[in-house]
């Protein structure tokens, strides 16, 4: 049995206090290594706190920052770590980065691709989006796919990571909890949504999903924790308590990936060239570079749906036939506010 011991560092970072957070990371990394952890996963912006606004530039680090090198050096003893911080690139863009540290070095950096800028989020104002979603080999003996929070609210992310060789998908988050409606399965709308996503991704990619979410508060936001490990069949292996600042050790059997992928060969059956071909077509049509064969009659180039038929009123939705007699493709929407 090829066992991987994962430490989920469900911490409450201190907003803007880089030194204090670095110290906490070093401490947790050291004790997790002594507890036999192979991989220690820290939350999104665990080194800086989340709601930085204009502080982001003040806590940003270059990848050659000695403080990062010092932290990476802690992994020389045979433990891997994923840490997250504000990265400043050579051309002075600021990214929300998550780095895989191994063998005393930075092995891989993922820059958050999807920056939520709606509702309570304002990330795009302060950060640049990453441009790559790539799996990385690791000392763990298995390919690893790293994503940051909102990256997992886009279907393409887990699919790309799994197709690129990841068997363990890791999402590090600063997810603020909201919607306390009693009807929610676990008392928190955000958590209910996330738990649904992670089980679905694990099942559809037949991969382990590791989710590490921070706790504590920044301003009005309370981060809910609830870190989890989901097996490749979609079954939860471990669920951390909500809101507690703690480190959780979880053992997983990597052979479960093989078992699941042989029993349920979804990845084998993926049609990459078909997806690429159809995506290429949609991209060209959206850009107005090709005639859109699937658009409503009268739709502007690239818009797919004709303005006069946009189903934004209940009375319009009742009919499935347009003025021209063409059937309108019914678009159904989730009737529930999205939670992140």
């Amino acid at each position: 049995m090829q066992t991987l011991r994962i430490a989920l560092a469900q911490l409450a970072p201190r907003l803007g206090e880089l030194e204090a957070n670095l110290e906490r990371h070093r401490t947790v990394l050291g004790s997790a290594r002594r507890d036999g952890a192979d991989l220690v996963v820290f939350p999104e912006l665990g080194l800086t706190g989340y709601l930085l606004q204009d502080l982001a530039a003040e806590v940003a680090m270059r990848l050659d920052d000695p403080r990062l090198a010092e932290l990476a050096a802690e992994t020389a003893g045979g433990v891997s770590a994923i840490v997250s911080f504000v990265e400043e690139s050579g051309d002075h863009r600021l990214f929300i980065a998550a780095a895989l540290l191994e063998d005393g070095e930075i092995r891989h950096v993922h820059r958050k691709v999807f920056l939520p800028t709606y509702g309570q989020f304002d990330e795009r104002r302060f950060f640049a989006p990453g441009d790559t979603i790539r799996a990385t080999p690791s000392d763990l003996g298995v390919g690893v796919g790293i994503a940051v929070c909102e990256d997992f609210w886009h279907l393409g992310t887990p699919l790309l990571l799994a197709l690129d060789g990841a068997q363990v998908l890791i999402n590090v988050s600063s997810s603020p909890g909201r919607d306390l409606a009693a009807r929610n399965e676990v008392g928190l709308g955000t958590a209910t949504s996330w738990r649904t996503l992670m089980r679905t991704y694990a099942q559809l990619t037949t991969s382990f999903v590791v989710f590490v979410n921070r706790v504590g508060i920044d301003e009005s936001m309370t981060f809910w924790g609830g870190s989890e490990v989901i097996g490749p069949s979609g079954e939860p292996i471990f669920s951390a308590p909500f809101f507690d600042d703690d480190v959780y050790l979880v053992d997983v059997n990597l052979e479960d990936v093989r078992r699941e992928r042989i029993a349920l060969p979804l990845l084998r059956d993926e049609r990459l060239e078909l997806q690429a071909r159809e995506l290429g077509r949609v991209i060209a049509e959206r850009a107005g570079l090709a005639t859109d064969s699937t658009a409503d009659a009268g739709a502007e180039p690239g818009m797919d749906v004709a303005t006069s038929r946009a189903p934004n009123r209940a009375s319009d939705r009742a009919s499935t036939m347009g003025d021209s007699g063409e059937p309108i493709r019914l678009r159904t929407r989730r009737n529930r506010a999205a939670s992140r």
Binding site: L180, A181, N184, G187, V215, G216, I217, T222, F242, F243
Partner: peptide, 20 residues
């Protein structure tokens, strides 16, 4: 019904908020 909240979660969030 639609306004009913999980009071255990609310108490925990609010306690953390006050302390923070």
């Amino acid at each position: 019904d639609e306004l009913a909240i999980d009071t255990d979660v609310a108490r925990r969030v609010i306690a953390d908020f006050i302390r923070g």
